[in-house]
């Protein structure tokens, strides 16, 4: 058996170096390699690659969706605080408007009341003046009648009236004082 190892010797070659077995072994091995590649190794490495890709993709997409979730949360937070701001602004504005309107109403009421008061005063004054004037006329006529009846003196009505006017004016001044 060790004689196989003496490669150089032609004597051994004739004895029986199984050169055919070299070919046969190589042939078997190559066929075996082909079969294993087709039936086991190919599908297996394909599956392993697929898995590696899937894991990488899953990690990437998880990262992406995490970032998206974070973004959404930030957006929501922002929207929330914004809506709070909006709400308080609306309330403030409403308050201001209400205040303004109230003031306006009060002011207009005040001015209305003032004008009503003024006109009432004017009216009163007018009526007072009218009443005074009527009274003045009545008193004058009465005085003339009284005077004409009492004195029985022919007196010109106009002269008499001027006299009494001046007298009543002096009376009015005393009243006003």
């Amino acid at each position: 058996m060790f004689s196989h190892l003496l490669f150089g010797s032609p004597f051994v070659l004739t004895e029986g170096l199984y050169t055919g077995n070299l070919l046969f072994t190589a042939f078997c091995f190559i066929i075996l390699m082909g079969l294993i590649k087709h039936f086991a190794w190919g599908p297996l490495s394909e599956m392993m690659d697929k898995r590696a890709n899937k894991i990488a993709n899953d990690i990437n997409s998880a990262e992406k969706s995490r970032q998206e979730a974070e973004k959404l949360a930030a957006q929501r937070e922002e929207a929330l605080s914004k809506s709070q701001d909006d709400a308080s602004a609306i309330v403030n504005r409403a308050k201001d408007t209400a205040k303004q309107q109230g003031e306006q109403i009060v002011n207009s009421a005040r001015t209305d009341a003032q004008s009503i008061k003024n006109s009432a005063q004017k009216e009163i004054e007018q009526e007072r003046k009218d009443a005074l004037a009527n009274t003045k006329d009545d008193v004058a006529n009465l005085s003339i009648e009284i005077a004409s009846k009492i004195i029985q003196k022919e007196l010109k009505a106009d002269d008499q009236k001027a006299l009494i006017d001046s007298y009543i004016e002096g009376l009015g001044k005393q009243n006003a004082r």
């Binding site: 029986g16 170096l17 199984y18 050169t19 055919g20 077995n21 070919l23 046969f24 072994t25 078997c28 091995f29 066929i31 075996l32 079969l35 294993i36 039936f39 086991a40 190794w41």
Partner: peptide, 24 residues
């Protein structure tokens, strides 16, 4: 003109078959 050793060939063949069946 090549010498073939039958026992050896059978052994190699059996080994190949066993390996293939295992992997299959």
């Amino acid at each position: 003109g090549l010498t073939f050793n039958v026992g050896n060939m059978i052994s190699v063949f059996v080994t190949s078959v066993v390996v293939f069946l295992l992997m299959f």
